[in-house]
């Protein structure tokens, strides 16, 4: 292995004898997140194209409850903090705090999703359905995809806690938590973009 070009980066992880010195899984996760940029970019662009186009149905500025969504956004942002604290605890092998922060992250995420569900039902009652208008279809699709991503994240967080309890996490636990964390943060930064482009910038 003498001639392998191993980088001296901080990520020569446990047993990562790879040509770059980087972990396969981490590399895979970052690439997946890169591809997700194209996915959300497409949904955001569709929304931006369609949002002000027609006058049918409720318009964004008539229906958005900025204070409410701001609280939701804040909650999701804080969940990124708790996630990074969970990763930090996992790296210190502090199992108790790792579990604690993972659960709190999941709860904050669930609160966010709950807020979305409340918001959607409120909008629906006010006349904005999925099929009502271009704005309706593209809004619900974009935020719905995001919400599904958050939900999948919550499942992964709870699965981590459960699998950890049963000692069923294969391999390097700290890295698994880190990778779930990367996914979680990504979902948060997508919301950072959505919150600005969709909610704060009126049509």
């Amino acid at each position: 292995m003498a001639e392998t070009a191993i980088s001296h980066g901080h990520d020569v992880g446990h047993g990562a004898h790879s040509s770059t010195g980087l972990s396969n899984n981490k590399l895979g996760m970052w690439m997946f997140l890169g591809s997700e940029c194209l996915l959300f970019g497409g949904l955001i662009s569709t929304y931006m194209l369609y949002k002000g186009r027609v006058n049918a149905g409720p318009q964004p500025d008539q229906i958005f409850d900025i204070p409410f969504t701001s609280v939701s956004s804040f909650i999701l942002l804080m969940s990124s903090l708790t996630m990074v604290l969970a990763v930090s605890a996992a790296q210190r092998k502090d199992e108790r705090n790792m579990n604690l922060w993972l659960v709190i992250t999941a709860l904050l995420g669930a609160t966010f999703v709950g807020g979305q569900v409340y918001e959607f039902t409120a909008f629906y009652r006010e006349g904005l359905g999925f099929t009502t208008s271009l704005f309706g279809s593209s809004f619900y699709t974009l935020t719905g995809f995001h919400g599904v991503h958050v939900s999948v994240g919550i499942i992964m967080l709870m699965a981590l806690v459960g699998m950890n309890r049963n000692k069923r996490i294969p391999g390097d636990r700290a890295e698994v938590v880190e990778l779930v964390g990367l996914y979680w943060h990504f979902v948060d930064i997508v919301w950072i973009i959505i919150f600005t482009l969709v909610y704060l910038i009126p049509s």
């Binding site: 591809s35 194209l38 497409g42 369609y50 099929t131 279809s137 699709t141």
Partner: peptide
Amino acid sequence: AIPVITVALFLLTFQRSFDATF
């Protein structure tokens, strides 16, 4: 590239199956 067609296919599916307006 795959995520882009993924978006397009979802929009079409939502249109055909759920009457979205895309």
